[in-house]
Nucleic acid binder design. Structure first.
Lengths: 204, 204
DNA sequence: CCATAAGTGGCAGAGACTGACAGATTGGGC
DNA sequence: GCCCAATCTGTCAGTCTCTGCCACTTATGG
């Protein structure tokens, strides 16, 4: 099933030189924006300045990213779907909490992730209310993908309600772990994730 | 300790006719705005229209509410502080999860809360990404107030990390319960809150 | 009764974002 | 190699949110 979500990047490699260029420009804008935000602060940097630094027009920046915040939060690779698929692949009889932890862990181990860049992005992301909010919005999107799967595995009374509580809590843990990881020097993301998840447990 | 946070409303009653008028205007703007958003959608309503409907200038609307979203999400009564104080008053040896649940319950039972208005506000709040985001932002503010208290009661390894996970998860449950309450007709908020909280439990 | 503080409206302007249009570039079929 | 079409880009005009500033009115307290 070839999912085509408007973004150009395919599962593994973008096909065609055009798609490659597009993804490259996108990545470049994001990189420049994060750098500018990191040094001057999100509110002090205008889209015009980002555009100038990259060497494109303001209009083009808005073509790649519908909102200024998306230059930091954007999710071109469809990570949400990736987590959902990872969770769907977990064994049926595994406790959901463990399954969720494993699914997020798989995300951390993903290849294309540059450590330094990721940490800087997370730091910038935590520094401004607008960005934090946008990030949480993204997580709500993920939650909508995960909740049905979790509800199906739970069964019993109030399954949808309980599933939503568990999924959103797990996403909160994911976020907390990543934030802690961005601040710390020598901790690994996977370890922090495990320790954060250890704080809670779905009631039987 | 007379906390004076820039808002005029005091703990119980605003003193002085001026403060009364101010709070009344504020409430009126919020009411009108929520109604307009409910019927036409958040994005389709301009601040100018809200101002016209209330009978004030656009400038004044922005004086009462720094952002358009705040007409729905605003927290004039300092609910965050109220939750914090409620939790601080819980017995030391009570499990934190129960203490948090009780603190939110106290909020639901608060007097000035109009059922119908509250439900409509929650429904509008869930209907637009911008509003959801602002609401989550408010919860992060609450989290910052609660986390230190919870961390102090937890103790042990990774106390701050675990406290944050627990607090944010509890806030997620609070939000989920309120959302479910807004959609439902005959369920009580307190009952939904208890059932949502029952889905999770901090690991010993 | 008056000086001061508070509230309000109008105005100008910055910044984010959108739609429309025109020109440039590139891809694939021939 | 060539051409048509799809794609990409920049420019322009315009809307909307939000802010600072100033003038004006009104209520409050001495």
């Amino acid at each position: 099933m070839a999912r085509y979500d408007g973004s150009v990047s395919e599962l593994v490699k973008p096909v065609g030189t055009r798609a490659i260029a597009r993804d490259a420009v996108r990545a470049r804008i994001s990189e420049v924006a994060v750098d500018l935000f990191d040094t001057h602060g999100f509110d002090e940097v205008t889209v015009e300045q980002i555009a100038a630094a990259v060497g494109v027009s303001t209009r083009s920046v808005h073509r790649y990213f519908p909102a200024k915040e998306d230059t930091v939060v954007a999710d071109p690779a469809g990570l949400g779907e990736r987590v959902r698929d990872a969770f769907a692949a977990r064994p049926e009889d595994e406790p959901v909490w463990d399954g969720l932890l494993a699914s997020y862990e798989a995300l951390l181990a993903a290849p294309g992730r540059d450590e330094q860049r990721g940490k800087k992005a997370m730091r910038v992301l935590g520094s401004t209310p607008a960005l934090r909010a946008r990030n949480l919005e993204k997580h709500l999107l993920w939650a909508r993908l995960l909740t049905p799967l979790v509800a199906a595995r739970l069964g019993g009374r109030d399954a949808p309600l309980r599933a939503e509580a568990i999924v959103q809590s797990s996403l909160a843990c994911f976020d907390i772990a990543l934030t802690a990881w961005a601040e710390s020097d020598d901790e690994t993301g996977a370890d922090l994730l495990r320790r954060t998840f250890a704080a809670l447990r779905p009631a039987a």
